[in-house]
Simulated scan of single mutants.
Amino acid sequence: MAEASGDARAVSEGVAGAACRINALPSHVLSRAISFLDARQLVQTCVLSRRWRHLWRSVPRISFSRDEFDGMAETEDECDVLFKEFVNRFLMLRNPAALDEFRLQYNIPDASDDLEADAKDANLWIHHALQSNARSVEVFGGVNDLLIDPGVFTSNCCFVTSMLLCLALLEPPFFRSLQTGCPVLERLILQCCTIYDPDISSHTLKVLTLDGECHCTFEGRATISIPSLVELCFFPDGARIPLLKNMESLVKASVLVGTDPSEVDDICQFLRSLSGVTHLKFHGKGFKVHFLVLCWTLMLISRS
């Protein structure tokens, strides 16, 4: 019994010692460490001690997830309301500290035919992140595609350099607004997005990816005009191979090749646009891909 009491006392002293060592860390280090928690867990750290009471207000990274609120109310709609109220309250009470990263997993079904109204809260939160100088922004629509309002990018004072959008609806003038409102954006990743805007342009992007789950709803071809682009991955479902303009910096390109015979002219035009590319991959099946690889090899030989 005495041994057991001694062990318990030793454990208790060890925990207390560990707590003291953690509290000895500077506040900015603690804020950085706890910022890797999801937002609801992050706020719960305020009960640990007086020193921890307000640390969550100045964290450099915020991650909101609707999944954190599963089972907190009798219905899914009530859980959605709790999530929205929590995020609004969190952003209202946080200190005006700059953000390194902002991550949002919205995952709320559209309640009506008014997509703009359904996405209003999410767009306000994204705008808040950009106004807080977030360097990295990641947004996941969830159950239904989330309509991203181009108006959230109206300020040209944001410092975002990397953006990932998943399960989002992108309507014109999305890319033009992104170009004017995010003047230092270098990396744009689109996953499972529905894209209504065929005019893709930028003065700063270096990496652009549209994955195989993206769907282009416009007729004709997308036009990509990005003089600064170094790496392009273009795999949207059912989309024609894009028309490239002003792509002098492009070094790596990966493109999905369809089976439509009418694409031959598009592909030839695409190849002629790749003056500086040294790494090229065509994705697809059959004779066409092998033929394109041969054409590309002959072009490289002719340059040397």
Rank of each mutant, 00 (worst) to 15 (best):
I224A: 01
S201E: 10
H54K: 08
P172V: 07
F159L: 12
D80A: 13
T194L: 12
N95K: 09
A119D: 09
L274A: 11
C46S: 15
E186D: 14
L91P: 08
I195A: 01
N88D: 13
D7Q: 14
G71Y: 00
L300R: 11
D100I: 10
D211M: 03
G141I: 10
D266T: 08
T217G: 01
V255G: 06
G17V: 13
F69N: 03
E248A: 00
S228A: 01
F291L: 06
T45M: 15
I189V: 07
M163G: 03
R66F: 00
I200Y: 01
S262N: 09
I224F: 00
H290C: 07
I195V: 14
V87K: 08
E213A: 08
C20Y: 08
R51F: 14
D38T: 10
V139K: 03
E13H: 10
N144A: 09
A8I: 14
D197P: 09
F159I: 01
N144P: 09
I148Y: 01
D113S: 11
L104I: 11
L292H: 02
A24T: 03
I226S: 03
P242I: 02
D237T: 03
P242K: 04
L250S: 14
V87D: 07
T209R: 15
I189N: 02
G181P: 13
S136Q: 06
V81C: 11
R50D: 13
L271K: 10
V251K: 03
V29A: 06
I148H: 00
I22Q: 05
A122Q: 06
F174M: 11
K120Q: 10
A73V: 07
V251H: 00
F291D: 04
V137E: 06
A122Y: 08
W296N: 04
L256I: 02
R135Q: 06
E263L: 03
I34C: 06
P60Q: 02
E68N: 09
R135L: 08
G14F: 01
C193D: 09
P172W: 07
S304W: 07
E186L: 13
W125Y: 05
L250W: 12
M299K: 15
D114K: 05
L243E: 14
L115C: 09
L170R: 12
T75S: 15
E116D: 02
D80R: 14
D70L: 10
S249K: 12
L37V: 04
S275V: 12
S5A: 14
E219R: 02
E85M: 12
V184R: 10
L55P: 11
E171S: 07
D114P: 04
N144D: 15
V87Q: 08
C268W: 07
P236Q: 05
T45Q: 13
V81M: 11
A24P: 00
G14I: 03
S112C: 13
L208G: 04
F175I: 11
L208W: 03
H283G: 04
E3T: 12
E231Y: 00
L42C: 08
N95M: 06
T223W: 02
L271T: 05
F83W: 12
G71H: 02
I226V: 08
R57H: 04
R221P: 01
A24S: 04
E231V: 00
L164G: 04
L271S: 12
T45A: 14
T297E: 06
T217D: 02
G142E: 09
